[in-house]
């Protein structure tokens, strides 16, 4: 009898653990947003994808092109409202460019809804347009 009860307890604990893991995984995936991204500036335009993960007040993002080639990664510190770029592809790896992009993309971590986002940097004439992707397979 005691052994049976112990088995039931163990089984229940295992089921609970799996359920919690499943919920955590779902929650983790809910924190991830995927967008198509277009950046237009006086010298031209570029398009790609932006994947954003929010964790508490901060988070991280990656910008890649449609082929999956990385443009840059960034980490956002919500407490200090600061973002830092790294793993930046060659043509964008200039201090000034990184500073501008880091400042411009901070609002991505401040919006809470899932609609399209438009960001404008009037000083440099840069426009960012992000449209949410429907996650068919993610």
């Amino acid at each position: 009898m005691t052994r049976y009860l112990k088995s039931c307890t163990n089984l229940t604990a295992l089921v609970m653990l799996l359920l919690v893991a499943g919920v955590q995984k779902s929650a983790a995936q809910e924190n991830v947003r995927r967008y198509t991204m277009e950046i237009s500036h006086p010298r031209g335009e570029m398009s790609g994808l932006c994947i954003v993960r929010k964790d508490g007040g901060g988070g991280a993002l990656s910008v890649i092109n449609q082929f999956g080639i990385k443009a840059f990664d960034a980490i956002y510190d919500g407490r200090r409202n600061r973002m830092k770029l790294f793993n930046v592809v060659g043509p964008l790896d200039r201090c000034r460019i990184k500073r501008v992009i880091a400042k411009d993309l901070r609002p991505l971590f401040q919006v809470s809804d899932t609609s399209a986002i438009g960001i404008t940097n009037k000083r440099y004439g840069i426009n960012y347009k992000l449209v949410p992707l429907e996650d068919a397979e993610q």
Binding site: V32, R34, L49, I51, R53, L61, S62, G68
Partner: peptide, 15 residues
């Protein structure tokens, strides 16, 4: 196409 994004611990899948 499966893009593994190590910083975000997630993947981006496209077909």
């Amino acid at each position: 196409q499966t893009k593994n994004l190590s910083l975000l611990a997630t993947e981006m899948v496209s077909t």
